[in-house]
Computed example of a mutant assay.
Amino acid sequence: MITVVTATYNRASTIPRLYRSLCTQSSLDFEWVVVDDGSVDDTPKLLNEISEASPFPIRVIQQENGGKHVALNAGAQNALTPWILIVDSDDALVSSAVETVISGIRGQGASDVVGWCYRKAFFDMRVVGARVDEDNCPEYMSPTEAGHLFKGDLAYVFKTELLLRHKFPVFGEEKFVPELYIWNKIGDEGRICIHGNTVIYLCDYLEDGYSNNFSSNLRKNPIGFLTFYWSQIAREKSFFYKIKYSIRSVQCCIYVLLKRFS
């Protein structure tokens, strides 16, 4: 029914935790596609060992280091199911995650549903972002709207065909494009069901992760960020966010020029 896609780079220390969470799923009706983005630690060896003993199908895709966005493109291309759940290699799933997703998909009769949105929590089960009362949570929202409402990272399940249609763009040697850029494009194709009080995903923010190194990533990947910010200026309804992303766009342009003339 679904493919769990994981892009990984030098995460031999955390992949076993993710693997254990997949092994303890109440439903094993899924496959796991892992894209190793040129790891130089023990990740390839570990993935080979895991794939030989797994109770569910695993396929490991090896590629040269190109960034998470390139790895996610490869993951989508190798998925054999109609739905994809992206899980980072330093994170995990609650034991009911796959069953919850499959139940939601089977119970939804609307043909225009292109994705599902669930909550993330830290490993101590504190919800990431803001808690929202059920009565104040719309049934459908765009990824941008959901981000503003919940004020934190969210777990998405998308149609495989749409992740293939809307691939992450690649800009030279840059290695990052904000995921929301693609999530919004998928949201433009149909409705995304919101489960604002259902946690399926457990996460951690490591010191060398993208979230904790925003400024550095912005300087290293200005075109990728500029592409996202420019699209958000037209998408946002709030004047505050339009100004915020306009300023960020100018910042990205400066970094682009500095890289070209350095």
Rank of each mutant, 00 (worst) to 15 (best):
F240A: 10
G224P: 07
R235F: 04
I194Y: 03
H195L: 13
Y205C: 06
E207G: 01
N212K: 15
G209K: 07
S215T: 09
K237E: 13
G209N: 15
I233V: 13
F239G: 09
S231M: 15
D208L: 05
Y201E: 15
C203V: 07
N221C: 02
E236G: 02
G209R: 09
D208N: 13
V199C: 04
N212F: 01
G224H: 08
N221M: 04
G196T: 01
T227N: 11
N197S: 05
K237Q: 10
I223L: 07
Y210P: 01
F239M: 10
G196R: 04
C203A: 03
F225M: 11
Y210K: 07
T198C: 08
T227Y: 12
Y201R: 13
F228C: 15
G196I: 04
R235L: 09
T227R: 11
L206G: 14
E236L: 01
L206C: 14
Y229H: 11
L202T: 09
G224R: 06
T227I: 09
L218M: 09
I233E: 03
N197Q: 06
P222D: 00
I200M: 00
Y241S: 07
S216F: 10
Y201S: 08
P222L: 03
K237G: 10
P222M: 01
K220A: 11
P222F: 05
S238I: 06
S211A: 15
K220G: 01
N217V: 00
N213T: 04
A234V: 09
D208E: 10
D204F: 13
N213K: 06
I200P: 07
G209H: 07
K237M: 02
G224Y: 07
D204T: 15
S231H: 08
I194P: 08
L206T: 06
N221G: 04
Q232Y: 07
W230T: 15
W230L: 15
H195E: 11
G224D: 03
I233H: 01
N213R: 10
Y210M: 14
L218N: 07
P222Y: 02
H195T: 13
Y205H: 13
I233L: 07
Y241L: 13
G196Q: 01
Y205V: 13
R219K: 15
N212E: 12
Y201W: 11
Y205G: 01
G196Y: 01
W230A: 12
H195S: 12
L218T: 09
E207I: 05
